[in-house]
């Protein structure tokens, strides 16, 4: 564990907590893509199946459980409890266009052809693009509430910090995982446009609004 990895994990945790607080406090999931949240739940569940086969550390186990439980709780809030506030019409991204190619890619490019490893690889590829429905929703409505912007910033920062962690681990431990590094770089690149808007608008107290 190094400072980049810890900061990345905490940023990820912060993102999830921000999202749950936003939905709970405003009693609304307006502006949040249920499609992205479905993809994140699929990511965590398919990646953390190793909870039952491999013990890494208490920290690792607790974080995995938190990510799975919070993603399912978010889905419950969006599709059951605050269903009426969910923005169906704008959240029209077709997730099968992400799910199927990621699964096929995982079957083709992986470290080992075992069910758990294929699912882990699938989750890594899927996580890289899981935010696309959310970014698509923001682009369709042309704006995002400030707490939604903070959520996206924390979520994007997490993988960017992991990139630093992987650079550190390569030099410090000789450890590297090309699949995770490649997907993590794609994931971070997808947020760049949003990072720019966040820094130039939201941090200056303005609402995140896209030019018409």
């Amino acid at each position: 564990m190094n400072i980049f990895r810890l900061a990345g994990d905490l940023s990820h945790l912060l993102a999830i907590i921000l999202l749950l607080i936003k939905i709970w406090k405003t009693r609304s999931c307006a502006g949040i893509s249920g499609k992205s949240q479905i993809l994140f739940a699929v990511v965590y569940i398919s990646r953390y199946l190793d909870l039952v086969t491999t013990f890494v550390s208490v920290y690792n186990t607790v974080m995995k459980l938190v990510f799975i439980v919070s993603s399912v709780a978010t889905l419950y809030m969006m599709y059951v409890k605050f269903k009426a506030t969910y923005d169906h019409n704008h959240d029209s991204f077709r997730i099968e266009f992400l799910l199927v190619p990621c699964f096929v890619l995982a079957l083709l490019i992986h470290a080992a052809f075992t069910p758990l490893e294929i699912l882990w690889t699938f989750s890594i590829y899927l996580e890289a693009v899981a935010i696309l429905p959310q970014l698509f929703l923001v682009s369709k409505t042309g704006e995002a509430e400030s707490i939604t912007s903070h959520y996206l910033f924390a979520l994007g920062s997490y993988r960017a910090l992991y990139l630093l962690n992987w650079i550190y681990r390569y030099y410090a431990e000789g450890h590297y995982d090309l699949i995770a590094i490649f997907a993590g770089a794609i994931q971070t690149i997808l947020y760049c446009d949003f990072f720019y808007l966040y820094i130039t608008k939201v941090l200056k107290g303005k609402k995140l609004q896209l030019p018409a």
Binding site: R5, D9, D50, T54, V56, F67, A111, D177, A180
Partner: peptide, 10 residues
Amino acid sequence: IDEEEGHDEL
């Protein structure tokens, strides 16, 4: 991947 330890990151 390390056969013994699996994936140690989140």
